[in-house]
């Protein structure tokens, strides 16, 4: 490998490394979690106080994901190599759970649908669609939950 190829590779590695190391200040964790929880509570309570427009619902859902992402990308109050390790572990488990959820839930819904339709004979069977919001919400929620759980193990 020539010297210029080597330095190009190093530059590329440095850029990727910077991207991987990107973290927001730790205050964003609290801001993200509290705001996402408040919006979620508002969305849930809106079912009791009358429906809100689908467009507003979509905007609020996107905001929930955005604030959860802020919390997920924020540094720990005492960021060190152990925090990076448990963050990696929590992303790994969240990824596996979110993918498993997106496979298993439609399958279970399909089986139940098939059974009920067979029993009652009330029409066609629809394959349950999982929204992107559902999957991303589970992914970010589980990542944050597992990160805090693994951090707690470090304290005990």
């Amino acid at each position: 490998m020539s010297r210029s190829n080597c330095s190009d590779a190093q530059d590329e590695y440095n850029k990727i490394s910077k991207l991987l190391e990107f973290r927001l200040p730790s205050k964003y964790k609290m801001i993200g979690i509290i705001t996402a929880s408040l919006i979620l509570l508002f969305l849930m309570s809106s079912k009791f106080f009358g429906d809100i427009a689908p467009l507003i619902k979509d905007v609020l859902r996107t905001l929930i994901l955005l604030f959860l992402l802020l919390a997920s990308l924020s540094m720990d109050s005492q960021e060190d190599e152990f925090s990076k390790y448990i963050r990696f572990q929590s992303f790994k488990i969240a990824f596996v759970i979110a993918i498993s959820y997106s496979i298993i839930i439609p399958l279970l819904a399909f089986i139940f649908d098939l059974l009920i339709t067979k029993i009652t004979g009330d029409g066609s069977i629809n394959f349950h669609q999982i929204s992107a919001f559902e999957i991303l919400f589970i992914l970010l929620g589980i990542q944050l939950l597992f990160f805090e759980t693994l951090k707690r193990f470090g304290r005990a």
């Binding site: 720990d76 005492q78 060190d80 190599e81 152990f82 925090s83 951090k151 193990f153 470090g154 304290r155």
Partner: peptide
Amino acid sequence: GVSRQTINS
């Protein structure tokens, strides 16, 4: 220069 959790773990 690490957290106490790191030492404990």
